[in-house]
Write a protein that binds this DNA or RNA. Structure first.
Length: 475
RNA sequence: CGGGGAGUGGCUCAGCCUGGUAGAGCACUUGGUUCGGGACCAAGGGGUCGCAGGUUCGAAUCCUGUCUCCCCGACCA
């Protein structure tokens, strides 16, 4: 069942596909560009959803649901928006056995249809802020797809908010980006750079776009979440307006922000290894797998004890699997649980039972410890905490080791595949395009808030630069 | 969409060049023995050879088209 994985060294892409397929996270479907998320993968998404949903509620947002189908004319109301999405739209032209009067597009994102409702719901400044979130699927037609990272249909959440002032909208945009940063770092154990996107990389229809960018194990960047200050662009297009404190009509100031099932790809690309999936404990579907060892009548007492330990562990909120399958050898199960990303393995056999102990093995470093049975619960907790911290620390160290300041185009070209490149850039799209062309694919990722900005000169044209920007090849 | 590679039981692949009744290993089922890093013996089930046309007495094999996946580019979360 669990065949050997393609090693990362030999081909990173093949390794990634192997992990997804063999850990049974997802499978290819018969629909071009679309995948099936299998229970192992969906469990990760459910865990992400649970945490994020709580964070959204804690920041005052409420969930709602809008239609999958959007009248084509809605998309056209915001010029930049339709231009940005036109090539990626799937359009429904027939329904009910007839050609439709007006085609529907399948939502690539919901700003337009949500604004059509906002404009009906909002009359006064007293109706603001309006803070909504939607968990949904969207479709964006893609030329080239990759499991989780880019598929034609994907699952995500999209937050949509309306505010009285530009300042409030900007604050909301940054607040939600910070929520994403917290989620990425504290739960996914994936260090990210939060910052502002360039003009050419921003969302079609936004005034400003911010992102969190993570570095994957192949040193490429993954945009893991985006938060947009939409200004009044959609409000004007849909006449989403309110009577202000001054008695005058004003268009609302809006934001939108989203993360998607792409995060699962990010999780895999950040932590997994040649033995398979590695998941940080805070998001893992299974925290502990107890492998029952023993034959014949010695098996009974071992199983009984395993069940008791499992019950103790579950009482502390952990997800525990008691692996009592006697048709597979223990060794086989070890590989299997490593492949599917179980955080901790507990081996329990007759010899252990005689000594009132068990063996615990961490998934990430495979460190093996023998602990007294009555200490398993506290030890397991400690090991999971340590693993969570160590995954983050290791990923952060990796990023540090592959981040470089570059001061010329020559250096930029030489280091194109080496990771994050911090370079001065004059903010002109032309220079950005130059870099992309000459390095075969290095693009601006964002201008991180945490990167001190000191003036310099653009690596392309030599004109003044306000500070260093992160450049990298990206997913 | 352009360049390169690949589609044959669930998986990895052989067979194709040189057409002639579809194979192996692993997995699966049953019975038995096993169990501390991928157990063993025996018996068994399972494939319109990606799909659609064509050539031929006969096609996994030759020809054409098409779909899908992988790798490298162009577009994107």
């Amino acid at each position: 069942m669990a065949e050997k994985l393609a090693p990362r060294e030999k081909g990173f892409s093949e390794w990634y596909v192997d992990v997804v397929l063999k850990a049974k996270l997802a499978d290819y479907s018969d629909v071009k560009g679309c995948m099936v998320i299998r229970p192992n993968g969906y469990a990760l998404w459910e865990n992400m959803q649970r945490v994020l949903d709580r964070m959204f509620k804690e920041t005052g947002h409420r969930n709602a649901y809008f239609p999958l189908l959007i009248p084509e004319s809605f998309l056209r109301k915001e010029a930049e928006h339709v231009e940005g999405f036109a090539p990626q739209l799937a359009v429904v032209t027939h329904a009910g056995g007839k050609k439709l009067e007006e085609p529907y597009v399948i939502r690539p994102t919901s700003e337009t249809i949500i604004n059509s409702m906002f404009s009906r719901w909002i009359q006064s400044y007293r109706d603001l802020p309006m803070l909504l979130n939607q968990w949904a699927n969207v479709i964006r037609w893609e030329m080239r797809t990759r499991l989780f990272l880019r598929t034609t249909e994907f699952l995500w959440q999209e937050g949509h908010t309306c505010h009285e002032t530009d300042g409030e909208a900007e604050a909301e945009t940054l607040r939600m980006l910070e929520v994403y940063r917290t989620f990425a770092e504290d739960y996914m154990a994936m260090p990210v750079l939060a910052g502002r996107k360039s003009e050419s990389e921003k969302f079609a229809g936004a005034v400003r776009t911010y992102s969190i960018e993570a570095m994957m194990q192949d040193k490429k960047a993954l945009q893991a979440g985006t938060s947009h200050n939409l200004g009044q662009n959609f409000a004007r297009a849909f006449n989403t307006a309110f009577q202000g404190r001054d008695g005058q009509q004003h268009h609302v100031w809006q934001t939108s922000w989203g993360v998607s099932t792409r995060l699962i790809g990010g999780l895999i690309l950040t932590h997994s290894d040649d033995a398979g999936l590695v998941v940080p404990p805070k998001l893992a579907a299974t925290h502990v797998a107890i492998v029952v060892i023993g034959k014949g009548e010695e098996r009974g007492p071992v199983l009984e004890r395993a069940q008791a330990v499992a019950a103790d562990l579950r009482r502390t909120g952990l997800s525990v699997l008691v692996d009592d399958d006697d048709t597979k050898s223990p060794g086989f199960k070890y590989y299997e649980h490593e492949l599917t990303g179980v955080c901790l393995r507990m081996e329990l056999g007759p010899k252990d039972l005689a000594k009132d102990q068990a063996v615990l093995v961490r998934r990430d470093d495979r460190a093996k410890v023998t602990v007294p049975l009555d200490a398993v619960v506290t030890q397991a907790q400690a090991m999971l905490d340590a693993m969570q911290a160590s995954l983050f620390a290791r990923a952060k160290q990796f990023r540090t080791d592959h981040t470089f300041e570059v001061n010329s185009m020559e250096e930029m070209k030489a280091r194109a595949d080496d990771g994050f490149l911090l370079a001065h850039w004059c903010e002109s799209p032309a220079c950005e395009a130059q870099v992309k062309e000459q390095t075969s694919g290095v693009t601006t990722r964002n201008r991180p808030f945490d990167l001190p900005q000191k003036p310099g000169t653009c690596v392309v044209c030599g004109q003044p630069s306000p500070g260093r920007m992160v450049f990298s090849k990206a997913y």
